[in-house]
Design a binder for these strands. Structure first.
Lengths: 162, 162
DNA sequence: TGTGAAAGAAAGTCCAT
DNA sequence: ATGGACTTTCTTTCACA
């Protein structure tokens, strides 16, 4: 929206650094990208306003917060008409433990990521959803572990090794 | 590992705030959770060292960086022996556009999230992988859009409305 | 857009509680 | 573990190239 549409080389480096460490000091960031702090601060703000930086947030350890179980869920609805889809999205929006939901194509209509304190709790969450109107099929994929979690590759910028 | 194992109420509020805004000032954060800056800073550091805060990073707009296409991929291997699994994980680790990979159970062995500049590029990435040894079956689910993306619910703490 | 300087604000340290 | 007072360091504004 607001701000530069074209990201220049310095912008890309700023994005790369902020993706690595979102709490980096403007000073340090400026030094790393080769400018001084004032224009660096302006660029960061522009990148935020323009939406290139969507958010800067802490990623928490879900287990430490009592969520021991994560499951991906594929959901197929009875129909793909707008009212049915919107009703489903509204139902999902109301359940705090369905953290993410993507509209997909392929062999299902939605992909969900769901967390729960334990397997029994997860089972009950999913049973409730299987009972929703217009839900034709649910397949769930319990997460055994994370094999990879990499940052978005920034064109022309290998992540700085700290 | 290091630090308090038990998160107290103030810790939970800190986590909640940092999940909302990872660049919040220590001062502001301290005021929100009802303590002064010095102990607040110590708590944040402890939470980071202990791993409760895994990272604080910028979430970038993938489209603005030239990745127009996202796909989830379910992969089933020929066998689930350790060498086969580890070889697959190593292959995934080497491909920058496979951002996330989860080891799962259910009807497949891995779930991947893959990004690409366009559909043709994505097609080629996936074709390469279908050709890998020990890959029995690939099902892909192109992402049409994000329906929901919510923070992890912190027990006893409704997210602060800014 | 960029820089340097200066005011203002925040982070980080120390110590008493 | 906390909070007050202090020192150091950073952020932010401004004038100007």
């Amino acid at each position: 929206m607001t701000g530069r549409q074209q990201l220049d080389d310095i912008d890309l480096r700023i994005l790369s650094e902020l993706q690595r460490d979102g709490r980096i000091r403007i000073n340090e960031l400026a030094a790393r990208v080769g400018i001084t702090a004032p224009p660096c601060l302006r660029r960061v703000r522009t990148l935020q306003r323009s939406g290139a930086i969507r958010a800067i947030r802490a990623a928490l350890d879900e287990r430490r917060l009592g969520y021991e179980v994560t499951t991906f869920v594929l959901i197929q609805l009875e129909s793909q008409t707008l009212p049915v889809i919107e009703a489903f999205e509204a139902a999902i929006a109301a359940v705090p433990r369905f953290l993410q939901c993507w509209r997909i194509s392929g062999d299902a209509d939605f992909m969900l990521r769901c967390v729960a304190p334990d397997v029994e709790d997860m089972r009950q969450q999913l049973l409730q959803f299987a009972a929703l109107p217009n839900v034709r099929k649910i397949r769930s994929f319990p997460v055994l572990g994370v094999s990879k979690d990499a940052p978005l590759p920034i064109p022309g910028h290998r992540p700085t090794p700290d």
